[in-house]
């Protein structure tokens, strides 16, 4: 039985656990008011967390559709990029999967001597982290671009007018 198939059997359980870890990256007060075990994902942020982890987990096992993976990542990172996180905290959720897998499998796999499988799988998670980093940067770039665009839009007609003033002075200077 491959490590992937072991993981595949426990997909639902592990992705839920992963989501739980992601939730723990929020301040304790926030976690508290988001609710207990049962209803803690009943809000737009929580639902994105659980959705993203549920999608990412099988995608990681299949590891054949980069687009699908980045779409799932994007969903979650988009939210974390505008919340009160440092860049590293924002994408730390990827490494939490590593933590989860080590907590769950390190000891038994060491005993069985199959630790290599775990390490091999972890390379995927590292790749995931790289993708997350790209997506995070893209989101932040988008935000900064939106800042500039917003100022431009707010003064759209002034900019237009400013150009006209330049034209006029050129004409005036000729006569």
């Amino acid at each position: 039985m491959t490590f992937e198939s072991i993981l595949a059997e426990r997909t639902a359980e592990l992705s839920e656990k992963w989501a739980g870890l992601v939730l723990q990256t929020y301040p304790r007060e926030t976690q508290k008011i988001w609710g207990r075990q049962k209803d803690r994902f009943d809000n737009p942020v929580g639902v994105t967390i659980i959705e993203a982890t549920r999608e990412l987990f099988p995608s990681l096992l299949e590891w054949d559709d980069a687009e699908k993976i980045s779409k799932s990542l994007d969903k979650l990172i988009r939210i974390r990029a505008v919340q009160d996180f440092s860049p590293s905290q924002a994408i730390s959720f990827v490494f939490l999967l590593k933590k989860l897998l080590r907590d769950e499998f390190f000891k038994p796999m060491k005993k069985e001597g199959t630790l290599e499988d775990l390490l091999r799988f972890e390379a995927k998670i590292d790749n995931l982290a790289m993708m997350a980093f790209d997506i995070y940067s893209k989101s932040r770039e988008l935000i900064y671009r939106m800042r500039v665009d917003e100022v431009k839009r707010a003064q759209h007609n002034l900019l237009k007018k400013a150009k006209m003033i330049v034209d006029v002075t050129v004409e005036e200077s000729t006569d």
Binding site: S86, S88, S92, K99
Partner: peptide, 24 residues
Amino acid sequence: MSDIPKADELFTSIDYAPPITGWM
């Protein structure tokens, strides 16, 4: 945005679990 923390700070930040404080 908060400043970028050092690597070890990040690791504490992941498991960081301060007691829940009252809002005040």
